[in-house]
Amino acid sequence: MDLEFLSPWFLYSYVVLLAIVPVRVIYDMLTGRMPLSGLFTAAPSPANPNPDAIDPERLALFGATLAGAGYYLVITFDQMAQADPHLESLPEMPQEMLLALGLSQSTYVTGKFFRAFNKRSSSE
């Protein structure tokens, strides 16, 4: 579809509208209106006697998420700068980064699953 048909005012108005959402989310995070406590800890329960302890797999997933997102932004802007006249496609995500993200996410889910299993065992 040829987007040159569309009026620029429509596209830029849409971009501004869409940009309001992440800006508001980041503002809420920075001002504490959106509480982020508990991002690295499991939910308190009888099976979790120390709810303030940081889970390593959550820390790993957080790091991998920021690293993956940052790395993808860098390679995109790098390819944009070199493209002539412009990119026809989003850049490929390197397989190694995809693998690292998949591993950290599967570790997080596995940890969450086993904690849930322990909760059930302790409650039964």
Binding site: V15, S89, L90
Partner: peptide, 12 residues
């Protein structure tokens, strides 16, 4: 990228 290219870009 879509706005820059004037067309929908591919997603790998």
């Amino acid at each position: 990228l879509s706005i820059e290219a004037g067309d929908f870009v591919d997603i790998p």
